[in-house]
Amino acid sequence: MVSQKLRRGLLLLPALLLTGCNTVVLNPSGDIASQQGRLIVISTILMLLIIVPVIALVVLFAWRYRKSNTAAPYEPEWDHSTKLELVIWGAPLLIIIALGLLTWITTHTLDPYRPLSRIDSARPVTPQTKTLKVEVVALDWKWLFIYPEQGIATVNQLAAPVDVPIEFKITASNVMNSFFIPALAGQIYAMPSMETKLHAVINKPGEYEGFSANYSGAGFSHMRFKFHGLDQQGFDDWVKKAKAESATMKRADYLQLEKPSEREPARLFGTVDAGLFHDIVNRCVAPDTVCLNKQMSMDLNVKPGQKHE
């Protein structure tokens, strides 16, 4: 009786463990993440079309041709079957072709650098659709978000209106990191002296988890932030609240924020220096520092043997 209950408990254990899983990747609130989740499901089903029959046949052959089954045919001279060869090679080949075609199409349609063509499956992006621009900086160990059009900045807090395309420009101050909001879109690397991009849209209001998906040192575990999907009025109110803050994000403020720190609280900055993100990418925020783009431009214009003036 005890062993029977134990067996039942072991059978239920995987189901109990799965109840604690967060399936946000397969049930996201953003159109890009939804398409990515659907791609995972379709790819898994296509692969299972081969895996499940193979596992079933392994069990079948092991049972049918067991040693004690003397009724099973014994054909030691058998070596070829055209029909069997067609099934063995044809089915996987068709699956590979289908997966390759699906991957090729989605690689282009879900390219993070590609501007959105739709809000969701029923609503295309029109020329009148306004895009929200957000500049993202991965710091040690916190996130800085700059809203250049609104003239505000935030630390460890991100907000966007629902059904409005978002264009993220992403970089890092020091080491490589990865910007990831599972409910919104896939992860995109943030690298120093480089700018990566992500286009996405949130379709449902709510509070979502964002974090770093690439280990970057001691404070990595706490490098998290909240992403708020708001209606347009809620977003406008959030911007007004940020503008009312006396805290500023000037270059001197950024140089202080850039220093490594852990468990930074979310906060808003009412003003931000124009061009700050450009200078972060080109590593020239500090005074009397030549920007990398200017340095490279000067290097291109210098003739062999000639010195910089």
Rank of each mutant, 00 (worst) to 15 (best):
A213F: 14
V24T: 14
E245L: 01
Q306G: 08
P304N: 13
Q187V: 11
H228W: 14
F61A: 04
V239T: 06
A122L: 07
K5M: 11
A200M: 07
M223C: 05
S121D: 15
L60H: 00
F227W: 11
L6H: 12
N282L: 04
N27A: 14
S261D: 06
Q157P: 02
A122R: 04
M296F: 13
P115S: 00
V58K: 13
M47R: 13
V59I: 10
M47I: 10
V2F: 13
L198M: 15
Q128G: 06
L139P: 00
R251E: 14
A159M: 12
V162N: 08
D163W: 01
T196V: 10
R38W: 07
T131W: 02
G210F: 10
E195F: 01
L6E: 11
G275T: 00
E77T: 14
D79I: 09
P161F: 10
S246N: 05
P205Y: 01
T248H: 11
M47L: 15
F225A: 08
L10M: 13
T82G: 09
S29F: 08
L132R: 06
L16R: 06
V201F: 09
A200F: 10
G275V: 01
N177P: 02
D140N: 14
E167N: 08
T106K: 09
S81A: 04
R267C: 04
P182F: 07
I166D: 05
L93W: 10
H278E: 12
F269S: 01
V134D: 00
Y65V: 02
W238P: 07
V52P: 08
Q150I: 05
V41A: 05
A252I: 00
S216H: 09
N177S: 15
P112C: 00
V2G: 15
A71E: 06
